[in-house]
């Protein structure tokens, strides 16, 4: 066991390399989350529009984006766009595009759900108290919507982080790919793959778990 594998993590800059790979996925995830939140709020308002056709179009869009496996969507953009339009997008850009489309749709649905879950009588009782519509939004409706929305939006962000692992499949050098490179370099260490993949597994868990725990805690607190 003297040099069986776990030591690979501490050889040279291996651990820093893994963290660097992880940062690539996280960067994609963070950009995606930022864009999805902003665009998702707008998309959610569109889904609440009074125009039926607009609502139907949004709904259809949501269902289509949700329906396909994200890996298929990634392939469509990464390989398909290059062929169809001659756009030679790199993996990271393709990933941000795909995940943002998906995240926007999901976020929009959460916004729609949160807003329409506020019962009508809340609005009416705010009006009955003599609040102006602006005051009603500021003090009654928006705080309630946020309480519904925030835990779910936080949960969505863990889903986005987990999904970014997929960029490995479109040749982005992220944490799994870096792991494979390290394993290749140290192929003599028999148990190296076990420790490298276990480490990546734990790293993802350490990132996602606190976030979903936060979401769960908020949900319970605001239930």
């Amino acid at each position: 066991m003297q040099d069986s594998g776990i030591s690979i993590l501490f050889k040279g800059v291996n651990f820093q390399r893994l963290m660097g790979g992880l940062w690539v996925t996280l960067r994609i995830a963070l950009i995606t989350i930022g864009l999805s939140v902003v665009l998702g709020l707008a998309f959610g308002l569109l889904m609440l529009s009074r125009r039926r056709t607009l609502r139907a179009v949004c709904r259809a869009w949501l269902e289509i984006v949700r329906f396909m496996p994200q890996l298929v969507l990634l392939y469509l953009v990464y390989f398909g766009f290059a062929r169809l339009f001659g756009w030679d997008l790199d993996g990271e850009t393709s990933a941000v595009i795909v995940f943002t489309f998906w995240g926007t749709a999901e976020m929009g649905d959460l916004v729609r759900g949160a807003v329409s879950s506020i019962p009508l009588h809340q609005r009416e009782s705010a009006a009955a108290l003599g609040l102006t519509p602006m005051q009603a939004y500021r003090h009654v409706l928006i705080p309630q919507t946020v309480r519904r929305l925030l835990p779910q939006a936080i949960n969505l962000s863990t889903r986005i982080i987990k999904t970014t692992a997929l960029v490995k499949m479109i040749n982005v050098t992220e944490v799994l790919k870096v792991g494979q490179q390290i394993i290749g370099q140290f192929y003599r260490l028999r148990e190296a793959p076990f420790w490298v993949y276990l480490t990546i597994f734990i790293l993802y868990f350490l990132i996602c778990w606190p976030i979903s725990a936060l979401a769960g805690w908020l949900e319970k607190r605001w239930a």
Binding site: G5, T158, K162, T163, A165, L166, K168, M169, L176, G179, R190, E191, A192, P193, F194, W195, V196, Y197, L198, I200, F201, Y204, F205, C208, W209, S212
Partner: peptide, 22 residues
């Protein structure tokens, strides 16, 4: 918690390429 907070892709790599080595 473990299953919900890790990506399937990483789980599969661990199962398929990691476990055989032990």
């Amino acid at each position: 918690e473990l299953s919900r907070n890790t990506p399937l892709l990483v789980q599969l790599f661990f199962l398929y390429a990691g476990l055989p080595r032990i």
